[in-house]
Computed example of a mutant assay.
Amino acid sequence: MSLLLDIKNLKVDLPTERGVLQAVRGIDIQVKRGEMLCLVGESGCGKSMTSLALMGLLPSKAKRSADHMRFDGIDLQSLDERGMANLRGSRMSMIFQEPMTSLNPSYTLGDQLCEALHAHKKVTAAQARDRAVYLLERAGVPMAADRMRQYPHQLSGGLRQRVMIAMALMCEPDLIIADEPTTALDVTIQAQILRLIRELQKEFGTAVVFITHDLGVVARIADNVSVMYAGQVVENAPVREIFTHPSHHYTRGLLNCIPVRGKTEPGSRLQSIPGVVPSLIGKIEGCTFANRCAHVRDACIAPPNVQVDPTHTALCVDAVPLASLETA
């Protein structure tokens, strides 16, 4: 598969009264066509800010910089607002976190679904309507043709999220960014939405950047995983590697917090990661996880980005190349 999204050393700074908050601190992202990349980490680690930076939707005072930001060979940093608007909705789409507020309450679902198609492609009203109905049906919305005349408040949260998924696919984008799209839904609906996103991604060959804090979700849908902490990617690997050979202490801490059937006794206290995320305002040196890590030592002042294997990196002094373990 060819490379679709190639981001090198992305940074996002936000001015505050106390100083500059480094929300995203030099991360690299690569996504191939048809691939599912999961960005995973605690709330506040920079996942959503990364997605907004990719879409050009950052707050007006935020400053974005990168060594390069390329989407299918297009330099995103060189595009003006009109250029980004031509990409958004057409070749890059986003499913936002909160389905209850992502749709405009003043317009029918049909109007909102067809709007992007009319803006980016030369189609008739009938063609736009037919595609909207088809995608609503594929997204599992019952009575799709009738729903076109309804308003968002007439739908449940799960149906609204299905509408958002259909809307993201209207122009057949190459990339969809899904920012925690199941957070506000109950467990049963979450499972249905996750299965739907994976099925549609395979059917349409769309690359997906899926943002979540739930490793259970990651295990079910990801091809590759980037673990974020305090604005950095601390580990990047195929999903199987993350679960079988976690190499950063933060990743291991996240995995240890998950109850395991047959091992975690009912009613027992779940593990947690002690401490709190450090402030990202001002200059930061060394490993940002050091204040919460039981294995911290002097070498953590300058943690290396270890190449665990050709597709697996970890920003930790204790990360060891797999070849070394196999020959030991």
Rank of each mutant, 00 (worst) to 15 (best):
S2V: 10
L4R: 01
V12Q: 07
V12S: 02
D13A: 13
R18S: 10
G19T: 03
V20N: 15
V20I: 15
L21N: 09
L21F: 13
I27L: 13
K32P: 01
R33F: 01
L37C: 01
V40L: 09
G44C: 06
G46K: 04
S48W: 09
S51M: 14
G56C: 11
P59G: 07
K63L: 15
K63R: 13
S65K: 15
R70M: 13
D72L: 00
S78L: 12
G83C: 09
N86R: 10
S90G: 07
I95M: 04
F96P: 05
P99T: 04
L103I: 07
L103Q: 02
N104K: 00
S106E: 03
Q112S: 01
Q112A: 02
C114M: 13
C114N: 11
A116W: 02
V123I: 10
A125Y: 13
Q127I: 15
R129V: 10
R129H: 15
D130V: 13
A132T: 05
L135R: 14
L135F: 13
L136A: 10
E137T: 14
R138V: 03
V141G: 03
P142M: 04
M143S: 09
A145Y: 09
A145V: 15
D146V: 03
Q150W: 06
Y151A: 02
Y151L: 07
L155A: 02
S156G: 01
G158M: 01
V163D: 15
I165S: 07
C171N: 10
E172G: 10
D174R: 10
D174A: 05
L175S: 04
L175T: 00
L175V: 05
L175M: 02
I177H: 01
E180P: 05
E180S: 08
E180M: 06
T182H: 14
D186E: 06
Q190W: 07
I193T: 08
I193V: 08
R195H: 14
R198W: 11
L200N: 02
E203L: 11
A207W: 03
A207Q: 00
I211E: 01
H213V: 12
L215K: 05
V218I: 08
I221S: 05
A222V: 00
A222E: 02
N224I: 02
Y229R: 08
Q232Y: 02
V233H: 08
E235R: 00
E235W: 06
E235Q: 00
N236H: 03
A237H: 04
P238T: 06
P238Y: 03
R240M: 14
E241G: 11
I242G: 04
H249N: 10
H249S: 07
L255V: 12
C257G: 07
V260R: 15
R261K: 13
G262L: 01
K263R: 12
E265S: 11
E265R: 09
S268G: 06
R269T: 12
S272T: 15
V276T: 12
P278V: 08
I281A: 11
I281L: 14
C287Y: 07
F289N: 10
R292Q: 10
C293V: 03
A294F: 12
P304T: 05
N305R: 13
V306W: 03
Q307G: 05
D309G: 05
V317C: 14
V317E: 13
P321R: 02
E326R: 11
